[in-house]
């Protein structure tokens, strides 16, 4: 027989869901055995709260558990709706990422052999994340593009969410490759600002052309400008201090332009949008 009972204050707090975990646990253990306290608690329980708890339980049982990428994003503080949108980004599929990693591993190995290849790698590094952004919006790769186009969700917001997701995954891969370079010093990070600048420039261009074309334009311009000088051994034009400041300015400028025009510009998400 139980000789003690929960005091009224404990019952009130437990019923309102305001009890600290230890109290809640011992109260629950007691409630399992004591009908008197169970009766006492029934009069305190807010039926709306019970209803809400019940709906939550049903929802948890019925809605499938989110996939692991979505759970990781939730841990990082990303909202569950945004996490679902990220999970649907075509680029973030295993085969594609393995592809980038494979190409980079090969390039790193080649760079050990020939120093000129190292410079080419720096030129090529921003193209990986950029290609990821393009793939995220290539019509043929997003099977639900038509459904998405007919939905009211903001094209710009979707573009930014997917771009952030692609950069979040591809930048670490490229960075890892950079660290594996021979005699890697600051050059291993020198491609980061150009990448940010090129991405922002491509995003800003999406008001005029589809994301895939915008990325193509930006990537072509980058390769045309940097390749000849890099091959000649001058990296300053693309990676010097002045260039870094320039790319920072491009990134900030592109970002500001996107922020200012977000309500007036229609993002062209596909050939036909």
């Amino acid at each position: 027989m139980t000789v003690w009972h929960l005091d009224p204050e404990a019952i009130r707090r437990y019923a309102q869901g305001a009890a600290p975990p230890e109290l809640a646990a011992s109260a629950e253990a007691h409630l399992m055995r004591c009908a008197t306290c169970r009766d006492a608690i029934a009069s305190h329980v807010d039926t709306r709260r019970v209803e809400a708890i019940w709906r939550e339980v049903v929802d948890r049982a019925d809605a499938p558990r989110p996939s692991w990428p979505e759970r990781i994003l939730a841990r990082l503080g990303v909202g569950e709706a945004t996490a679902r949108l990220v999970a649907a980004t075509p680029t973030l599929r295993g085969p594609w990422l393995l592809g980038i990693a494979g190409v980079l591993a090969l390039s790193v190995w080649a760079a050990q052999v020939d120093e000129r290849l190292l410079r080419m790698l720096l030129v090529a590094a921003p193209l990986g994340p950029l290609a990821g952004v393009a793939v995220a919006f290539a019509g043929g790769l997003d099977p639900t593009r038509e459904i998405g186009l007919a939905a009211p969700y903001s094209g710009l917001r979707l573009l930014l969410i997917r771009t952030a997701a692609v950069l979040g995954v591809t930048v670490p891969i490229v960075a890892a490759a950079g660290l594996a370079l021979p005699g890697s010093h600051w050059l291993a990070a020198a491609w980061l600002l150009p990448t940010a600048g090129l991405t922002c420039a491509a995003l800003a261009l999406t008001a005029r052309m589809t994301p895939v074309v915008a990325v193509g334009v930006v990537a072509t311009a980058w390769v045309l400008v940097t390749t000849p000088t890099a091959m000649a051994g001058h990296l300053d034009l693309a990676f010097g201090v002045g260039a870094q400041i320039f790319w920072l300015a491009v990134a900030v400028g592109g970002g500001l332009w996107l922020a200012v025009t977000r309500n007036t510009v229609t993002i062209k998400l596909g050939r036909s949008a």
Partner: peptide, 29 residues
């Protein structure tokens, strides 16, 4: 109409519901 084939039926329809701007999880589900 294509689908994200790795999604479950529920996840996929839920994904489209998000694109339709149903942001509150419970009413959306």
């Amino acid at each position: 109409a294509g689908f994200h084939r790795g999604f479950t039926v529920f996840e996929f329809i839920d994904y489209v519901a998000i694109l339709k701007q149903m942001t509150d999880r419970r009413p959306r589900h």
